[in-house]
Design a protein around this nucleic acid. Structure first.
Length: 430
RNA sequence: GACCCCAUCGUCUAGUCUGGUUAGGACAUGGGCCUUUCGAGCCCAGUGCGCCGGUUCAAAUCCGGCUGGGGUCGCCA
C-alpha cells in the first residue's frame, strides 16, 4: 500500500517549498488511494513552537490538503532510544561524550530515485554520526529513519536538499534491519536571484500570501506549475482534476525560479472565474481580518464593488488600493491626477449635477445617456467631461469604466463628490 | 575543498525515453487596436535548445568532456 508523509518542523511558517512538497505527496497518495500522513518533527524543543505548528496545520488545511493521520516526534523519544539501544547491542553504535554515535560502514550506495533515476555515492563525508544527542533527543536522520520504517512509509518524497542525507539513512535502515522505501527528490524552488528563497526576495510563507489575498486554489495551481506540467499547453488546472492525472515520473529535475508575476496572473485568473458571491465571502473575511471594513458596511454594496474590480485585480489586497474610493470619501486627489482638473468646468458639472439629481433609477444605462447628453449640449467631447469626473469620484486618472463606477457608488455619493469638485475649482480660482 | 544534483526564450515549461517539428504554450517585455482612462480586454512581434567533440543520412533528443548554476557536509531539521 502506498503511504507517504509530509514532515514539517514547527520552527517556522509553512513556506513555498514545503507547501509544494506537501502538495506533491498528497497528490501521489490521492492518485493511488494511498495514505498521506503528517509527521511533526518537533525534536528541537528550543526552536519548536505551538504557534508555528498551528500555522503550518492551518496553512496545509487552507490549501485543501487533508491528512490521514498526524504524529509528533516529541512523543516518540522512547522509540528512538530503544532502536539506538538495539544498534549498540549489535555493535553498530556506541556511547561517546554523553551521546550515541552511529558508525557508518563505508561502501558504495546506490539509490534509484523515482524522479532522477540512479544516483551513486562513492563515499560519505564522515565516518560516524550522532543519532541520540547528549540530552536524549534523536537527531534528524535517525528519527526520520526509525519513523519512516515504523510508520511503514512506502515512498519518501522530499526536497532535493535531502539527496545527500539519503545514503546515510540507507545505511541506518540496513543496520536496523528495516526495508528500504522508495525515494523521490523534488527540485528546489529558487528566488529571482537564483539562490535560496529568502525573505529578502519577498514573501516566502504561505501565510503571507494568504494575508495578501491570494486564493488557495491559485497558489496550489501555481505551485503545481513549478516542476510539473499538465500538458496540452494548459496552465489553469484544479487540484481535483490533477488528482486524476498526476504522475511522479513527470516531475522535473530542474530547480525552478519562483515568479511573482506569474503567480499574480494565475491568481487573477481565479478571481475572474469566481462568482461574486463566493468572492464576497472571501473578501469580507479578508477585509475584516485586516480591520479595514467600515463598521457600517453593506454586504450588497460590497458585492457591487467586487463586480467592479474582479476583472482587473490580481489579488484581494489590490482592492484596498484601487478600490479605496468605494469605501472612503476621496476628497484628496492624486497629485498626478490634478492635471486633468486644470480646465475649470464648473458650469458643465453644475448642469451634470442638476441632471443627475433628477434621475430616479440611477443605473449604468441612464447615467451614460444623461452624461453624454450633458457633454453634447455643453459643447464638450465626452472624454473632456469623463476625465475630470473620474478624478472627482475616485481621486485617480485610471480605474474601472466610469458609468459602472457611478452606478456602484450611487447617486448620493456621486453628487456629493461632484459638488466637492466644484469646491475644488472654487478654491483654485478664489 | 569533498560528495551529489541539474542544464530548451528574461522566467515557468512542452518536446528528450521511442533521433527527422517552421522547436509549441504561458508569464513578463515591445508595438498596435478598442476607447471614457487604464495597470483591464483583443491582436501582433522578438528572443531559446550553454560550449566542444563523437555516433548518425539526420542530434534539443544518444555518448563523452568542458563550462555554468544549485544542494549537502551541525549533538538544526
Amino acid at each position: 500500500m502506498v503511504k507517504v508523509r509530509f514532515a514539517p518542523s514547527p520552527t517556522g511558517y509553512l513556506h513555498i517549498g514545503g507547501a509544494r512538497t506537501a502538495l506533491f505527496n498528497w497528490l501521489f497518495a490521492r492518485r493511488q488511494a494511498g495514505e498521506f500522513i503528517l509527521r511533526i518533527e518537533d525534536t528541537d524543543q528550543e526552536r519548536s513552537t505551538k504557534e508555528y505548528l498551528e500555522e503550518i496545520l492551518s496553512s496545509i488545511e487552507w490549501l485543501g490538503l487533508n491528512w490521514d493521520g498526524i504524529f509528533y516526534q516529541s512523543e516518540r523519544f522512547g522509540q528512538y532510544q530503544q532502536h539506538a539501544q538495539k544498534l549498540i547491542e549489535s555493535g553498530k553504535a556506541y556511547r561517546k561524550e554523553g551521546a550515541i554515535f552511529f558508525k557508518y560502514e563505508f561502501e558504495q550506495i546506490q539509490i534509484n530515485d523515482l524522479i532522477r533515476g540512479r544516483i551513486v555515492f562513492k563515499e560519505l563525508p564522515k565516518e560516524e554520526e550522532v543519532i541520540i544527542k547528549s540530552d536524549g533527543s534523536p537527531t534528524y536522520n535517525f528519527s526520520c529513519v526509525v519513523d519512516d520504517a515504523l510508520m511503514a512509509i512506502s515512498h519518501v518524497m522530499r526536497g532535493e536538499d535531502h539527496i545527500s542525507n539519503t545514503p546515510k539513512q540507507i545505511l541506518m535502515y540496513r543496520a536496523l534491519g528495516f526495508d528500504i522505501p522508495q525515494f523521490a527528490h523534488f527540485p528546489l524552488i529558487l528566488s529571482e536571484g537564483g539562490g535560496r528563497l529568502s525573505k529578502r526576495f519577498g514573501a516566502t510563507s504561505i501565510r503571507e500570501y494568504r494575508e495578501e489575498g491570494y486564493l488557495a486554489e491559485a497558489i496550489v495551481n501555481y505551485l503545481l506549475l513549478l516542476g510539473w506540467s499538465p500538458g496540452n499547453n494548459r496552465e489553469i488546472v484544479s487540484l481535483d482534476e490533477v488528482k486524476g492525472m498526476f504522475d511522479i515520473k513527470n516531475v522535473n529535475k530542474t530547480a525552478a525560479i519562483f515568479s511573482l508575476d506569474k503567480l499574480n496572473w494565475v491568481n487573477a485568473e481565479y478571481i475572474k472565474s469566481k462568482h461574486i458571491e463566493e468572492l464576497a465571502d472571501y473578501t469580507e473575511r479578508y477585509l475584516k481580518s485586516k480591520g479595514l471594513l467600515p463598521a457600517n458596511f453593506d454586504r450588497q454594496y460590497l458585492r457591487k464593488v467586487i463586480g467592479l474590480f474582479k476583472e482587473r485585480i490580481s489579488k484581494l489586497a489590490d482592492l484596498l488600493d484601487w478600490g479605496q474610493f468605494c469605501f472612503y470619501n476621496t476628497y484628496r486627489y492624486n497629485p498626478d491626477a490634478e492635471e486633468v482638473l486644470k480646465r475649470d468646468l464648473s458650469k458643465e458639472v453644475k448642469v451634470l449635477i442638476e441632471k443627475f439629481s433628477a434621475v430616479e433609477n440611477f443605473n449604468r444605462e441612464i447615467i451614460e445617456k444623461e452624461f453624454r447628453a450633458v457633454a453634447e449640449t455643453q459643447g464638450l467631447k465626452a472624454r473632456d467631461l469623463v476625465h475630470p469626473t473620474r478624478v472627482a469620484l475616485t481621486g485617480r486618472k485610471i480605474g474601472p469604466g466610469l458609468f459602472e463606477t457611478m452606478e456602484v457608488l450611487g447617486k448620493k455619493r456621486v453628487i456629493e463628490r461632484l459638488q466637492r469638485l466644484l469646491e475644488y475649482w472654487e478654491g483654485k480660482n478664489g
